[in-house]
């Protein structure tokens, strides 16, 4: 989860698409999507639909950290041991 938090935090306030997030973190879709779902359920992640950039393409989901997510990312960056995320499953 640290990798996803860090990637989103570093790009804030920019929103990132799922596939780009995979490339940034090196996570596979089977690891990334459960993490994103869990983060969204916990209120750490906000998502919104973006208009397609080319005709015939479906709209894409883009993600950014919520205020809670930003606070957790900051805490994890300043003190990874006390953030509770060290050792958490990717």
């Amino acid at each position: 989860m640290l990798a996803v938090l860090a990637a989103l935090y570093d790009r804030a306030p920019e929103r990132i698409h799922g596939y780009d997030l995979m490339k940034l973190t090196g996570l596979k879709s089977g690891s990334l999507y459960p993490l994103l779902m869990r983060m969204s359920d916990r209120g750490l992640l906000a998502s919104e639909w973006c208009e397609p950039t080319a005709p015939g393409r479906p709209p894409r989901h883009a993600y950014r950290l919520t205020a809670r997510g930003v606070a957790l990312a900051q805490a994890a960056r300043n003190d990874p041991d006390s953030s509770g995320l060290v050792g958490a499953k990717a």
Binding site: H17, Y19, L36, P59, R60
Partner: peptide, 19 residues
């Protein structure tokens, strides 16, 4: 309850397939 996520995955699948 994960319909939005399914749609999101479908859109990203198009990008992954292109790559």
């Amino acid at each position: 309850h994960r319909r939005d996520w399914a749609a999101a995955m479908r859109a990203e699948f198009a990008m992954a397939a292109e790559a």
